[in-house]
């Protein structure tokens, strides 16, 4: 397009983008602030206490691996699942530009499968944490706790009867972990619902009748945003 285009003289979109896509971008921006507020609040509390749970000890399990110590492995798998489903989503958008219905269908199915795989991983991880069985010294007695929004068995370790045992940690840990990963997981879930809706509409030929696949682009923006948020959740909860 010419470089001296007068974007604000009327008669055209000053952002050269359709109304629906602009509004999706603004929604995602507000959603970014919501997630940002959650993550920064978590960071504030974490900075304000002397001891915080070490993610390498909390998140070290893998399905069917028993009690093997595998820090970061399972969450890396979840990260790669989400990156890959982002790739299949952008490929679906690409096929949409080419008006290739079969291609859009194929990549939307792969994207939905990726989303479901991620949700399955998260369900396993939550179950593993909630039903965990960690020795904690509470009022001089050893109790066995899982990690919930009211119980944090990952506090400071103290000497008790000649062995090191953890004490209860700040309950904010479980609240932030389940709150933020849950809010993200809910976004993944709604993203899967949106993608299934788009797949059905593609199969019914709605976008061919309309003459463009812009709805796939909007669903794609949402789905990539979910991946984007996970990148930061991965950083804040698992890596640092």
């Amino acid at each position: 397009m010419p470089t001296n285009t007068k974007w604000w003289n009327g008669g055209r979109s000053p952002f050269n983008i359709s109304y629906g896509k602009v509004m999706m971008w603004y929604f995602l921006m507000s959603d970014a602030f919501t997630f940002g507020a959650f993550l920064i609040s978590y960071g504030t509390i974490r900075f304000s206490v002397n001891h915080w749970a070490d993610p390498n000890h909390v998140f070290n399990a893998f399905p069917f691996a028993g009690h093997a110590n595998l820090p970061l492995v399972f969450v890396s798998l979840m990260t790669f699942i989400l990156i890959f489903s982002s790739v299949t989503m952008v490929l679906a958008v690409h096929e949409g530009h080419k008006m290739n219905r079969k291609g859009v269908e194929k990549y939307m199915i792969l994207t939905i499968l990726g989303g479901l795989a991620f949700l399955g991983c998260q369900a396993w991880e939550w179950t593993h944490m909630i039903t965990g069985d960690h020795a904690v010294l509470v009022n001089g007695q050893i109790e066995h706790w899982g990690t919930t929004v009211t119980r944090n068995p990952w506090g400071v370790e103290v000497m008790h009867n000649g062995a090191m045992v953890a004490t209860p940690g700040p309950i904010a840990f479980g609240g932030y972990f389940f709150g933020i990963t849950g809010f993200h997981g809910f976004h993944v879930f709604s993203g899967v619902i949106i993608n299934v809706t788009m797949l059905i509409k593609t199969r019914l030929g709605h976008f061919d009748q309309r003459g463009h696949y812009e709805m796939i682009e909007k669903a794609g923006l949402y789905w990539h945003f979910v991946d984007l948020v996970w990148v930061f959740v991965f950083l804040c909860f698992y890596l640092v």
Partner: peptide, 27 residues
């Protein structure tokens, strides 16, 4: 450094996958 790498990943996702890098400067 890990946080900086995360920002780099965010740049690639937003710029390439979400095609923001292909939009005009106003957008």
């Amino acid at each position: 450094l890990i946080a900086a790498l995360t920002i780099a990943k965010a740049y690639y996702i937003v710029s390439i996958f979400m095609h923001l890098g292909d939009e005009i400067r106003n957008m």
